[in-house]
């Protein structure tokens, strides 16, 4: 990861805007922002961010690579699409946020203990295994995200809820031991590998054709 990071730093020599345009999903739109701030103002989670989208876009232009990729902001997006709907320049802000988060992970700069990031990791691991989300396992791994004792405590607290769900057949405890999977797991894994390969190749090759 960090090798990848160094390579990118070398390649773009401080032109972080160009790096984002080339490598971040919908990154070519960042330059179109005119700093009106309607995205930051429209975000329901806005008060909890360190930087809103508009500030992140300005930081990208100012070459603040480390700060942007380590920012919590992109992880706070809940995909409500308020920003996209209101943006006077039609920037696909939601997608850019997800793109930034993804790129930060790739570069090994994403904030380590950011809860959303952790959840995403767990979710991805969970999904990748069998091609289906195992909700029971995902829930339990979330309980234990902050350590064993914390996990037990949470589990006990949530026990009545879990039992209730079992009673009403909203949850099957047997899922814990495997649960349902996609039919062709091997094929599924091959697909994922191929996708990763394509993306890595793309990043290595450098710039894509621009937007607008």
């Amino acid at each position: 990861m960090s090798e990848n990071n160094n390579e990118m730093i070398e390649r773009y020599r401080g032109n972080f805007l160009r790096e984002v345009e080339d490598n971040v999903e919908e990154g070519e739109w960042v330059k179109m922002c005119m700093q009106c701030g309607v995205c930051s103002g429209s975000c329901p989670l806005g008060p909890h961010w360190d930087f809103g989208p508009q500030t992140l876009f300005m930081m990208i232009r100012a070459g603040k690579r480390d700060e942007v990729l380590a920012a919590e902001g992109p992880w706070m997006c809940t995909s409500c699409y308020n920003c996209i709907v209101r943006c006077p320049r039609e920037l696909p802000i939601t997608h850019i946020m997800h793109g930034l988060a993804h790129y930060a992970v790739r570069m090994g700069l994403a904030p380590k203990n950011q809860p959303t990031r952790k959840f995403s990791d767990l979710f991805w691991k969970n999904l990748k295994a069998d091609g289906r989300v195992n909700e029971l396992r995902l829930g339990i791994s979330l309980y234990f995200m902050h350590g064993f004792v914390d996990g037990i405590k949470t589990a006990l607290k949530k026990a009545p809820l879990g039992l209730g769900m079992v009673r009403t057949k909203r949850m099957n405890p047997m899922e814990f031991f495997g649960g349902h999977k996609v039919r062709d797991r091997k094929g599924f894994h091959r697909m994922l590998e191929k996708a990763e390969e394509i993306e890595s190749a793309r990043i290595e090759k450098g710039p894509r054709p621009g937007a607008e």
Binding site: Q35, C36, G37, V38, S40, G41, G46, P47, F51, G52, Q54, T55
Partner: peptide, 11 residues
């Protein structure tokens, strides 16, 4: 009125 003052990111 709700929003963000973009000069210094003030909500």
């Amino acid at each position: 009125l709700h929003g963000v003052d973009t000069e210094g990111y003030r909500r």
